[in-house]
């Protein structure tokens, strides 16, 4: 389960940090393990992701998944961000997860979506696993 790639993203996280000013900002925790993740996103004039940073602390799975997600988000429109699915996250991680660990893997996705829906002033729509 701890592949070279996951460990690499965990130890050398891409897009880790915060932005000076962000259009979209959201944060949440996983009550089970206390993991927390914050996303900050800046959009360009076409409502496409210009910059994205995540920060937080937690297990290798939640942190690596969030980091991989930031790369997938680059250049996407907010509508495209809404369409990123848990399947995309599993594909990025490339491993199968037990039900408990699924929550870790999807924490970043959940936080990102909360941010996007809130920015759009739309009702937050999450998959059962992302809640």
């Amino acid at each position: 389960m701890y592949t070279e790639m996951i460990l690499d993203y965990y130890k050398f996280p891409r897009n880790f940090g915060t932005l000076e000013k962000a259009d979209i900002k959201s944060r949440d925790t996983n009550p089970l393990c206390g993991d927390e993740i914050e996303f900050q996103i800046n959009l360009d004039e076409n409502k496409k992701v210009k910059e994205v940073k995540y920060s937080g602390k937690g297990c290798a799975i939640s942190q690596a998944a969030a980091s991989m997600l930031t790369e997938l988000m680059q250049g996407k429109t907010v509508d495209e961000l809404k369409k990123i699915s848990k399947g995309d996250i599993y594909d990025l991680l490339g491993i199968t997860l037990s039900p408990v660990r699924v929550k870790c893997a999807l924490l970043g996705l959940k936080v990102m979506k909360i941010g996007v829906y809130t920015y759009l002033s739309e009702e937050i729509k999450l998959d059962e696993d992302e809640k």
Binding site: M1, G34, C59, A60, R101
Partner: peptide, 28 residues
């Protein structure tokens, strides 16, 4: 190593231990 990662690795070895805040968040 985060306790959850540790618990997952130990699980593969058949070991059941607890990881998390143990329902004692003020203490943690």
């Amino acid at each position: 190593i985060h306790p959850h990662d540790l618990a997952s690795i130990l699980d593969e070895e058949g070991i059941a231990i607890r990881s998390g805040h143990h329902c004692a968040q003020p203490l943690m």
